[in-house]
Structures are given as C-alpha cells and as structure tokens.
Design a protein around this nucleic acid. Sequence first.
DNA 1: CCGAAAATGAAAATGATTGTCAAAAAGTGT
DNA 2: ACACTTTTTGACAATCATTTTCATTTTCGG
Lengths: 134, 134
Amino acid sequence: MSTRREAVKQALNHSTGFRSAQDLYADLRAEGSKIGLTTVYRALQNLHDSGEVDVLRTDDGEAVYRACATESHHHHLVCRGCGKAVEVEGPAVEKWAESIGAQHGFTEVTHTVEVFGTCAECAAACREGSGKRT
Amino acid sequence: MSTRREAVKQALNHSTGFRSAQDLYADLRAEGSKIGLTTVYRALQNLHDSGEVDVLRTDDGEAVYRACATESHHHHLVCRGCGKAVEVEGPAVEKWAESIGAQHGFTEVTHTVEVFGTCAECAAACREGSGKRT
DNA sequence: CCGAAAATGAAAATGATTGTCAAAAAGTGT
DNA sequence: ACACTTTTTGACAATCATTTTCATTTTCGG
Ligand SMILES: [Zn+2]
Ligand SMILES: [Zn+2]
Ligand SMILES: [Zn+2]
Ligand SMILES: [Zn+2]
C-alpha cells in the first residue's frame, strides 16, 4: 500500500469518467505531486490486477481507467462528450453471452460490453452551442 | 478499387479470425507481394471506413480486422486460442443497450460487444496436450 | 542505526500507427 | 503512342503511448 498508489487511486476517485495514465499524471503533477509517469503506469497496472479499477480502450487504442463503486461484474454507459460513466448491469446480456458461447461449443466464456452515448448535459450544451466541456 | 486494396481484402477473406495490419503485411509479403506496410494500413482504414471490415482492439491495444460475411449489425464470438471468430446476433442485447441509454437520458446510443471463449477444437487440443495452433 | 527488499523516476527502448514526399501507375483527351 | 493530370504507392522519418532498464531513495525488520 504505497503512497503513490493511493495517490493514483484517489485521483481516479475524483473523476467521474475514465482517465488515461497520461491524464492522471497531468492531474497529479498539476496539484503539486512529484510522481513520475512510470509510477502512474505501474500503479494503474497494479490497481487493475487487483480488480480495483476497470480499464477499457478508446477508439485510438489508449487505455483508460476508472475506479468503480462496485467490484462486482458490471458494464458502463459512457458519455462520448464529457466521458462521464455510469455503472450498469445487464442480466439479459450475461445470459445471452453464456448462451451464445455454449451454442457454438465455446467454453470459459467471457465478454466485454460498453455502451456509448451523449449524456443529457452534453446534449443540452451542444444544442445551445456553448461547447461546454467538463 | 485499387489492386492493393483488393489484395488486402482477400488476405483478410482467407482468414477465419481477426488479423492485425502487421499480420496481413507479413502474409502478403510471404506470398510474394511487394506491398508496403503503409499501404496495408491505408487499405484497412479504407475498408473500415466503407464498412467492409470490422475492427476491434486486442487487450494490448493492437487493432485487428476481419472481413465479415454480413454487413448488417452483428457481434463476434472469438476463440481465445486460435482467434477463430463467429458472427453472432443478439436482439436482446440491442434492446438492452438502447433501453439502458434511454433510462439515463443518453442519446445517440451505440455499443460494443464481444464474446470470448475457447472453441471446441482448441479445448480438445489443449486437453490432449498437443498445443495445436491454427 | 544497519542492511535487505520494495518502490520510485529519469531516461532509453519498443512497437504500432501516422505523416511526408517523391516516384510509379492509371486515366484522359489528342 | 503522347503529353499531362490525378491517384496510388512505399521507403523513411516522426509520433506517441507504454515498457524496460537501472541507479537512487524509501521503507522496514531487527
Ligand atoms: Zn456528457
Ligand atoms: Zn457482463
Ligand atoms: Zn480455437
Ligand atoms: Zn449490437
């Protein structure tokens, strides 16, 4: 339980959406920390290995992380505009994935599911042309 | 409809699973083509833009492509061992994603869904310790 | 306080992807 | 076939996130 790791975890907690290692590094430096980029990467790997944070890939392949409220299996509804993410569950999807795998003779079935959209705030901001960004 | 683009498309057609740009480049060179890596990337972007191939990211962020039988919306069941992919549909998932988005006030909802598993062949191969790889 | 083990970070290395730009190929009207 | 324009191509350099390396600093048990 190193201090650095905690710092990264907190930086993540303060954000409502997914952040990249580079983002978090910038955040931490901005608030005065002397943390190194390498350490941020290491902390994130670590937090991910221990299941404390979720990770997904942006369209351009960058890894982004999030500290979720629950550690139980769930998925995300992510705003394309501000990045805000909501944790969601989908029993129907879980069953479907299992079933599809079984139907084709696949075992050890897992899945990745992400839902993207424009949140109400971003839609409003866009509509009034303010171009607001959080 | 350049020759190179066709070459890439065919290389992709010959494969049952997802392939990376580098994989395809290697394949094409191996069979004697003088194509350049840059062109392979360009062809893939192109094919993807026109909706002729699907793309997804591996865990380590590499983009992999596949020429699917259908151009209509679908998802994939991918073998973790040999990479073989099966095109699958999930009306339940489509509805769920829309619904979840709406429930949270999100608009322009899209989603990514991938199912992973070990196919029957790979499971058998593994069981008999042959370590077979296609 | 002392030495071993873990954590840290600066700098170099890696590796996929993209940008640049001049040469090669394809098209067009003559 | 010819002169000329437009498109495609590919070698090479440039980017950029992520990983490695390695020497230094911290942490901790005794
Ligand atoms: Zn938003
Ligand atoms: Zn799930
Ligand atoms: Zn398989
Ligand atoms: Zn779908």
